[in-house]
Design a protein around this nucleic acid. Structure first.
Lengths: 214, 214
DNA sequence: TCATTTCCATAATGCACGCAATGGAAATGT
DNA sequence: ACATTTCCATTGCGTGCATTATGGAAATGA
């Protein structure tokens, strides 16, 4: 499912298969939701706002996702899938530990400051505090995400001579630092330069920790 | 303004001054907003939800805060004021650097996982993404908060022989780590044990950084 | 070609939301 | 004591929200 963010409505009256139509419409709607949440926030991401951005009507949303909850869950699934795929397709040739750390931190930070993550964050924030916990427990996503992170982490740092338990801690710590940096950046209103020095401090910590023998 | 969270409606028909009434009602409403956001989330914190929790009607809110935006801003002001006061009243006698770091991290983490902070976080998250930026710019709060943090930081670590610039970096980093830990904790659904080891790693980093000469 | 299914726009409905308006009880102050 | 002000409950309103219902155009497949 390609990124359809900048697509405008097709010139109309083009013969396309159902599969094509469905793919584009779904992508367009999902992108609209992500953009809307990232720009105007979750609770202003209303039905009409979504349809306006997507250039479709609510009928389309209704057909593809059922109701609003359906889209939100779909955004979670789609974003997570894309994210996991991107993470696991990273070419990890023989780098030094330092370079791997830098590379990893860079990628991860990029992710946590992305619109996609911001959106999922707000969606989850809202979902896990409803009286009516839906069938797939909201906290499940967090678990899946951490698993995916863990796979990537092991590919990057699996050879470190540090106890597994310690590695999990470092992993959790890293995620915390990065999401924290991302959120402060977010609250500081809009896009600011990336916090190089803070990231450097994190990288130094990781290198030191991973280098030492278990 | 005392914490009125667990207060129930007074037995009615008690003679009280206007000042007393106002103080209690305001406190009750503010507490209701904080609790509501922390428990059911920002966008389910509706007018009736607030009045229900506070045990008052909308008329009271209207009288004391004007409109909904008024309460939210009031929550920001009140929470921040309380927080700053608490921070600056900490007795900082002669402790070792290690103990000061532990103490500081502990306090700060406590703050970032508090209901008050979660509430202000969500309020700010929503406010700074509206088309109509109100008179006091939303990002102003963040600045004020960081100033308050800075004052406390200097009281704790002002004697460190580390360049000021580096200290600001460490400060920012610390806030990021703590908010990050708090938010992952939040997303992991409900109250979990506090992440001792992650905090320990942060403390170790701070001690190492602050101990070295400029 | 024609029936069926998929896809989606249009229109209508019901509801919850924030808010304004009003009035009255309680406190104030003169 | 009485006018004034403060405090807050009640009521009602307009709007925007999510959602349903319906119909028709386009694609499918026989």
């Amino acid at each position: 499912m390609a990124d359809a963010r900048n697509l405008r409505r097709a010139p109309a009256r083009v013969r396309r298969s159902h599969a094509e139509r469905t793919a584009e419409t779904r992508a367009r709607i999902l992108a609209a939701v992500v953009d809307s949440i990232a720009e105007v926030g979750f609770h202003r991401t209303t039905a009409v706002e979504i349809t306006r951005r997507a250039g479709v009507t609510w009928g389309a949303v209704q057909h593809h996702f059922g109701d609003k909850d359906g889209i939100l869950v779909a955004v979670l699934e789609d974003t997570f899938g894309r994210f996991a795929a991107r993470l696991e397709s990273v070419a990890i040739d023989r780098m030094s530990l330092e370079r791997r750390v830098v590379f990893f931190v860079e990628r991860a930070f990029e992710h946590f400051t992305s619109r996609e993550y911001v959106s999922t964050f707000e969606i989850l924030l809202d979902h896990l505090r409803r009286k009516d916990p839906p069938s797939p427990d909201g906290a499940r996503w967090q678990v899946q995400m951490l698993r995916a992170w863990d796979r990537v982490w092991r590919r990057f740092f699996g050879d470190a001579t540090v106890p597994r338990k310690r590695q999990l801690l470092l992993q959790h710590y890293t995620v915390a630092v990065l999401t924290g940096l991302a959120s402060t950046l977010l609250l500081e209103a809009g896009e600011r330069a990336l916090p190089r020095e803070e990231l450097a401090l994190l990288e130094a910590t990781l290198v030191r920790e991973l280098a030492q023998a278990g």
